[in-house]
Design a binder for these strands. Sequence first.
DNA 1: ATGGCTCCATACTGGAGA
Length: 256
Amino acid sequence: MKIATYNVNSINSRLPVLLRWLDESQPDVVCLQELKAPQEKFPVDAIQAAGYQAIWHGQKSWNGVAILARNAEIKEVTRALPGDPDDEQSRYLEGIINDVVIACLYLPNGNPAPGPKFDYKLQWMERLTTHAAHLLSKNLPVVLAGDYNVIPAEQDVYKPERWIDDALFRSETREAFQKLIDQGWTDAIRSLYPYETIYTFWDYFRNAYGRNAGLRIDHFLLSPALSGRLTAAGVDKQVRGWEKTSDHAPTWIELA
DNA sequence: ATGGCTCCATACTGGAGA
């Protein structure tokens, strides 16, 4: 079972790139973030023509998440992260595919920090941590996949000293991520490649991709029931070099 | 320290992203 996560930075601007990548990579499950489209503007016909079922939660202008599955039913569980009924941002979608719980998340950026956006990010991480504990308590196979907007460690950023005060790398952010991991989750990519430099995002500015000035911010966290089934992981880095591409690259894992 | 780029809204510019 090949599961991917991809922050597309506008589903409609990215549709040709997305369809080409689906055809070449053939993932079984895909978590998409930053649809940047309202519910009714999701290109469901093109996605279905490519062979994928889809559930999605859109929003005007910003955010938006979707889960795609090839040749499999998606049973939607929730389209809101519990813990704040007033939160109107579309950043969380959870479904069950072949008995695996798939959580697709788009964690807030949080800049500028400190400030209200950073407070929202930390609150969102607390809510995620609470919900993640609930998922773990059921001993189910769970994948928490998505754009975390968290740089977990110095090895995950091209120049750590430049990111010390950034919301993606601040100590509060890293500590909150570690607290989540410490519940018993496995950072899938890092567990297979403890020492490699692996990036999933390159800024549009300053020829960041050409200089490989990247960040690792798209992650898969696996529950204990799944970590033993992890057989492979990678980043489809070449997609970042295509025309009209996202600033993120598709990232994937394989489960036995 | 700054700006560089891309996308959205319904614009002739500003906000957001990371």
